[in-house]
Design a protein around this nucleic acid. Structure first.
Lengths: 342, 342
DNA sequence: GTTAGCACTCGACGAAATAGAGTGCTAATA
DNA sequence: TATTAGCACTCTATTTCGTCGAGTGCTAAC
């Protein structure tokens, strides 16, 4: 089952070549490369073996070979070299992230754009999960009759708003009081426990406001993890430049998979548990992505992972380069969120 | 130059037919329709006339005719019938807009989705412009050292945030004071004048904070009209189902035009001056949209238009249906923003 | 174990043939 | 004078067929 050094070398050469050319690799192409002093016939024999072992596939009898998912997996785990970023690439990324990015939304968008611009694949990023954030401030701003805007701010500087109904008997001053009391009492409470804590603690000075508090708690729980999460996507059309998507139906398929952002959100949420993840072709849960690879990384404030981002591309992907880019971006992004303007 | 009734009728029949079939319409197809008791030869003569007048085009000698932009313009201006919505369509729209949509973002997204689902075209919507809104509340929430979150709320219940730097000497209590003073002083000031007004009025109790106020004003002006505006897009892939986009390059073109959302923002902003607008093919400023039509409508709070939304489709579009849908959605949306949860 | 040689397979590409839709024109008709 | 039937013609789309070339697998020789 294990591959000897020569098979490994040949397989790597094939994969590298296929990643560049996107067309099946023949034995001659490999035998001509420096490093192998072997005839094409020998390579052919080895390739036949590799095919039997499941690392290569043949589109049809008289074509060259293309790597299987299994081959990419091996490649990623054992033989890939990380490609460090060029100065131009770093410049390009910095250009996207330089401006005074004072809103999360904008940071997300710029990150996605930078990623897709540098990699030429499709980039995606999920907004930060607030669960592990801590409460900093709650503010109720009265609007027209019977409504108020509730604003919840976390220590990391993220804010969520919701318009909520306010019973008639609660006036502006009372809203102010409730804001102050809640802020003081629940300051630094984890966001994912906030609702629960408020409910438990309703006996105190806010007892007579318990129905209203209920409304607030509901809105808060609804906000911690937005139900229509705003995954930012960039460069979906990049995929159309790859020969694997010159078929309109393939393209349609891919774009459909990517447009339903719920899918991507699930993907990214799952991926946010691991610092980096690479999912190759059929390893994807989503059938529509079964000839794509997904590479993700996380971003964080301090130690706490907030969310993840990544790129989607053909399985024939520049894994080495992509990983380096993600690593770099992860650092940039985390730094931005921690030190700098939000 | 003017068309007699018969030419008009024939032209309308051709357009209606072409909208359905997407393939050039021959003389026989028209002569067989009820209503015209004319042979195909007569129709042919009329069609030749219509072509000479610029209303029809012939892809090649032995094909039928297709309507020109000029024909669609005439169609839209004079002969189109509005198609009222079916119950199913209304249900579909309501289904998208029913839930407690408590955040602008969500409303935008749902609207776009409903639009693209009902029309099968590509839908877009711009977020509300705050310029004509009035200030309701300013709140500064201290974050980690040297930072605060500035939150600006308008009377319509929209909020914008920005993380800003805070000089060391300004403590929490002082931030609170500044918030209160600004809110009191500039309550109900139009958002697009707010920055200016604050600058003018700096002499009062906040004189010693003028550098900090400068920072705030900068952030405010930056926020009133976001520079990377979050145009929501939905159903971009719908276009791939239309035969006019079975060519990958056409598809690429369209998707590229639509992905750079700046373009769409400009489009929508310009369109927000008119309650409804229809732009056909070459009438579009953007060359990449020159074989698309764009139909837009506005949404408002009270009398004040806030922004616009619309759909993009092939010039061969169901204009009547689309207009009705937009009309209906415009009402829905404005109602939602005015009465109900934001 | 490696290699040269060769017959074989299969898709890509282009030329030629065919079918069919639709036209424009002419001459007949009402 | 407006309409129509008839017909030759044009152009595209589709199919068929032959050729080319890349690449293979196998065998026999090194």
């Amino acid at each position: 089952m294990d591959l000897d050094a020569r098979k490994l070398g040949i397989l790597k050469a094939i994969i590298d070549e296929y990643i560049l050319s996107a067309s099946p690799v023949g034995s001659r192409a490999i035998s001509k490369q420096d490093g192998f002093n072997l005839s094409s016939a020998t390579i052919r024999n080895e390739m036949a073996d590799l095919e039997e072992l499941g690392y290569l596939e043949q589109p049809h009898t008289s074509a060259g070979r293309i790597p299987s998912d299994k081959a990419y997996r091996l490649y990623v785990d054992q033989m890939m070299q990380k490609a460090s970023l060029t100065d131009d690439e770093i410049k390009l990324i910095r250009a996207h992230l330089t401006a005074k990015l004072d809103e999360v939304e904008t940071v997300m968008k710029q990150t996605a754009q930078a990623l897709s611009a540098v990699t030429h694949y499709t980039a995606m990023i999920m907004p930060p999960m607030l669960a592990a954030n801590r409460l900093r401030h709650i503010q109720l701003v009265p609007l027209r009759e019977g409504r108020a805007l509730m604003i919840v701010v976390t220590t990391a500087g993220f804010a969520r708003e919701a318009v909520i109904r306010v019973p008639e008997e609660i006036n502006t001053i009372e809203l102010e009081r409730i804001s102050r009391v809640l802020t003081e009492r629940f300051r630094d409470c984890r966001m994912d426990q906030l609702g629960e804590r408020i409910m438990q603690d309703m006996g105190g000075e806010l007892f007579e406001r318990r129905t209203f508090l209920n409304t607030m708690v509901e809105a808060i729980e609804h906000k911690i993890e937005p139900d229509a999460p705003n995954v930012q996507l960039s460069g979906a059309t990049n995929m159309l430049h790859f020969p694997e998507y010159s078929d309109v139906n393939k393209a349609k398929m891919f774009l459909a998979a990517v447009e339903g952002k719920g899918t991507l959100y699930e993907l990214l949420k799952r991926a946010s548990r691991l610092e980096f993840s690479i999912t190759i072709g059929g390893e994807n849960e989503n059938d529509m992505l079964k000839d794509c690879s997904v590479v993700t990384a996380t971003y964080q404030i301090g130690e706490e992972p907030l969310g993840s981002f990544g790129i989607i591309g053909p399985t024939r992907m520049h894994y080495g380069k992509v990983l380096s880019v993600l690593e770099f971006m992860s650092r940039c992004l985390s730094e931005m969120l921690t030190d700098d303007d939000e």
